[in-house]
Each structure stands twice: as C-alpha cells, then as structure tokens.
Design a protein around this nucleic acid. Structure first.
Lengths: 128, 128
DNA sequence: CATGACGGTATCATTTCCGATACTATGGAC
DNA sequence: GTCCATAGTATCGGAAATGATACCGTCATG
C-alpha cells in the first residue's frame, strides 16, 4: 500500500482518482511503466527509448516508482555496472490503468492520430 | 482533438499514455471530472466538495478542462451570477480512464483502505 | 448604508518540478 | 596512461504550478 504524497486527501469521494494520479504522475512514470509491461529493462535501454529524459530525471522517476513498490531494481555487482528494472506484482496491478490511459490517448489525441498514420508501427503488435 | 501541452511527444509508443496524463493532470482535474460524471454542477457546489482547492485554482482547472473540450461552461446572466459546469460528449469519453484510476485508488491506496473502514460511505453507491 | 450571495480577477510569494552540465567509480581494451 | 562503457550523483538555475490574500460588480435584504 503506497504512501500518498498528497498532503491531505480529504477531498471527497473522487479522491481515489487523485491518489492514483499522484502515484503515476511525474512526467515520465507513465511511459516507464508502459515499457516495463513488456519486460525487464536495463537503465540504458530505458534511456534509449526515452531520449528526452535526462539521466537525472530517469533515475529519479525510477527511484520513486521503486519507493512506491511498483518496480524492482536488481543490481548486478559487476563492472561495468548492470542494473535491471522490472515490474513487481504490485506494479502489474496498474496495467488496466495504464492501458486505459494509452487507449484513450491513441483514440483521442493528435499523438494517437499520428501514430495511426504510420502502419509500420503496427508490426509491433501491442507496442503501438 | 485536444492540444497537447507536451513540448515533444516523440517519446516512443508509450507516449499516448503521457499524452492522456498531461490532459487530466493538474492536481484537481481528476476529481473535478469525477464529480461531473454525476451531473452538472455550479461553481460553488464544486468548491464545497473540494474544500482544499482555492477559488483561483478551481477557476483555472475548469478553464483548462473547458479549453480541452472536456467540459461545457454555461453562464446564466443573472444576479447573483450562476454558472453551470457539465461534461461534453468528448469529456464523457474519459469515463473509462477516470474510473480505472478510481478503482485502482480504492483498491490499492491507503485512501481507498480508509474508505473501506467507513461503511457509512457505502450508502452513496457509486460515489464512494 | 452595510452585508451577503455568486463567480470570479489580480498580485505576489512560495514550492515544486525539471533541465543542463559536470563529476564519480571501476575494470578492461588500446 | 588514456579512453570507453555503465549507472549513476552533485550542483545550480529557471520555469511552471500552486497557494495566500485581497479585491471587484451587482442586486436584494435589513
């Protein structure tokens, strides 16, 4: 049961909505989670598919996701370092949420529209 | 098709997730939308169920939701003023998203847990 | 004349988020 | 001895989001 950063969540019934939003908010967490649904990834692998995220931000977002129990950080004590990120069982419970977000984005934003124009992505199956 | 505040959305397939998040982000939009699913509301009615939101913030969030085409603002030219907010058809397309967020929050956050401890809220049906 | 209801604005301060950049550690290859 | 790869930290600064507070306009009531 993750902590909630909200100072006071006594904001009426709909508050569970905000509580969830707070946890997956943070500019890159959604995408990070989305990619981890497809499997374990190393730090630099995430950097490659998220070229706009600075190293600092990526680290921070990953740490927060870890703190909240969504992802697991596996450190292999070797040189050069190897660190793998994967979803926890708890993290997987977010799948319906993330997928609802993605589905809506695909259908209703210009980003989704652009994507449909590019059939090459279709070969990636669930990825696109 | 709403504008996207993100500067660059070339952040790989999962980006539709972020696109959606950006639109319903903003600390109070989730709750506002959630409450509007239950029907039209006046400005002060929203203030009452969201006591932590300042008037300024509420106005701003509502204006952004309006800009993005999610809600409709109906002004009745009378004294004292009356302004009603309601979801547009487009706004209603967000229902699965918001409900997914709420469901997860209810089941997995301490806020949700607290709520379950309070059976009185159960009488509110879908509200709680 | 003062007060209250309603739906706001305006202004300022603070907090929080985020980006850019530089720096670190270690071992192996060259 | 230098460079590279990996996974970070540290520090600084600016921008954006949010909060606090005060003010506005109008009509009705007292």
């Amino acid at each position: 049961m993750p902590r909630i950063r909200h100072k006071s969540l006594d904001c009426s019934p709909g508050c569970a909505v905000e509580a969830t939003l707070e946890l997956i908010d943070g500019k890159w967490k959604g995408v990070i989670l989305y990619h981890l649904f497809h499997g374990t990834m190393r730090f630099n692998a995430l950097r490659k598919i998220l070229p706009n995220v600075t190293q600092r931000m990526l680290t921070m977002q990953l740490r927060e996701l870890e703190e909240d129990g969504f992802i697991h950080r596996e450190i292999y004590p070797q040189i050069p370092p190897k660190v793998e990120y994967s979803l926890t069982d708890f993290g997987r419970t977010l799948e319906p949420v993330v997928m609802a977000l993605k589905r809506w984005g695909d259908e209703h934003t210009t980003f989704g529209a652009e994507k449909k124009k590019s059939p090459a992505l279709g070969t990636q199956g669930q990825h696109g």
